[in-house]
């Protein structure tokens, strides 16, 4: 995984959302082949989408959607779990983390939710 890949594909997703078309970039198929597994898609999904321009655009949009929705989900979940934990409700904090985990398909985001779950029973935040 490289952060540059994430940045590039999100920029492409934003461009599509603003009505632009995908650039004719010979690096694009390789980028999407690398990124698909990063958001929980199979390489076969990516490969089949690369056969046509509309399908490739749809693939970019789907990768962008998964990164975006997961990002906001993480933000809400970390906030909610911290508030519950601070109020002494560690079971509640665990529940919101587990609910987010059940919905999350992006491996990186799942690992980051797990990092919070691993600390949910800690008695302090330092």
């Amino acid at each position: 995984m490289t952060s540059d890949d994430w940045r590039k594909v999100i920029d492409l997703g934003l461009a599509l959302a603003n009505g632009a078309e995908l650039p004719q970039d010979p690096e694009l198929p390789a980028l999407l082949r690398r990124m698909a597994p990063q958001v929980g898609m199979t390489r076969a999904d990516a490969e089949s989408a690369l056969g046509s321009a509309p399908d490739t655009a749809a693939l970019v949009k789907e990768i962008h959607r998964r990164t975006r929705e997961g990002t906001y989900r993480l933000g809400r979940t970390f906030g909610a779990s911290d508030l519950l934990k601070e109020s002494g409700d560690r079971a509640g904090a665990r529940k919101v983390l587990e609910d987010a985990m059940a919905a999350e398909v992006v491996p990186l985001y799942r690992a980051q939710l797990q990092a919070y779950l691993d600390h949910v029973d800690d008695l302090d935040d330092t």
Partner: peptide, 10 residues
């Protein structure tokens, strides 16, 4: 959107 690939837990 926050770049959790660059900055985040772990």
């Amino acid at each position: 959107q926050w770049p959790f690939d660059m900055c985040g837990p772990g």
